[in-house]
Design a protein around this nucleic acid. Sequence first.
DNA 1: TCGTGATATCGAAATGTTCCGATCTATTGG
DNA 2: CCAATAGATCGGAACATTTCGATATCACGA
Lengths: 114, 114
Amino acid sequence: MPILRYTVLMAGSHLDELLDVCKALANPTRLQIMGWLRDPAEYFAPQADPMEEVGVCVKQIQEKAGISQSTASQFMAVLQRARLVESTRIGQWTYYRRDDSRIAGLPELLKESL
Amino acid sequence: MPILRYTVLMAGSHLDELLDVCKALANPTRLQIMGWLRDPAEYFAPQADPMEEVGVCVKQIQEKAGISQSTASQFMAVLQRARLVESTRIGQWTYYRRDDSRIAGLPELLKESL
DNA sequence: TCGTGATATCGAAATGTTCCGATCTATTGG
DNA sequence: CCAATAGATCGGAACATTTCGATATCACGA
C-alpha cells in the first residue's frame, strides 16, 4: 500500500518539524527573542540598516537578552534551523527577522501533527 | 498605570504557559503519545473502561511506546502539568486523554505569545 | 595592510533532561 | 488478610542543552 506508506512518512516529517520547532522554543530566552522580533522598533535601538526590512543584528539581540556573543549567535542559529527566523548578511552584520509566513503556518502544523 | 502592568503580567504568564507546552512537546516520545491519544481506538487495545470517554491507561501507553513504567508515568505527568492531557482515576487505573479544549486554544496562545 | 568591530565556531564546565530499576501506595480478587 | 497489579515517586547514571571564553573569519576604514 504505497499510499499508506506515503501518509506515514509525511506524518513523520511533519512530526519532526513540530519537534524541532518545540525544541527551539523550549528556552525562555529564545522565546523572548521571538517576541522582541515581532516589533523590533519598540525593543531595539536604531541601527545601520532598516530593521523592519532586514531585521535586527546579533549584537543588539545579545545586549537586549544579556547573554554572551557566542550564545546569541548560537541561539539565532537554532531558531533559523527551525525556520522560525530568516537572516540577511549585509557587510559585517547579520540581521535576523521573523519568518512570518512560516509562523503563520504553525497552527496548521499543530493541527496536523499534535 | 495598572492597566499596563496587568498587560505585562499577563503576557509573562502566557509566555510561561507557552514555554511549558513547548518543553512538554520537545520530546519525540511525548509528541508521539499525544498523536496516539487523538485516536485511542486505532492505537490501543481494548481495556476495562471505555477509552473514548476516560482515555487510555498508563500500562497501554508504556507498552505502545516501549518505555519503562516509571518513564511512562513521568511523561504523562509532564503532559498533564502543561495541561495537554487530563486524567481520571478509576480503581487501580489512571486513564489519560487529550485536553481538547486546551489544545484547541494553542493556536491562540501561539498568536499571543510567539 | 593593519587594527577594529561583528559574527561564527570550538571546546569545555555547569546545568537540565532522559530513562531506568527499586521502592512505596493504593486497589482488587481470593 | 494476602498476593497481584497499576501507578507514583525516589535516586542515580547516561546523555543533551546551556553558556561561556577563546579563537577564527570576514568586512570596513585609516
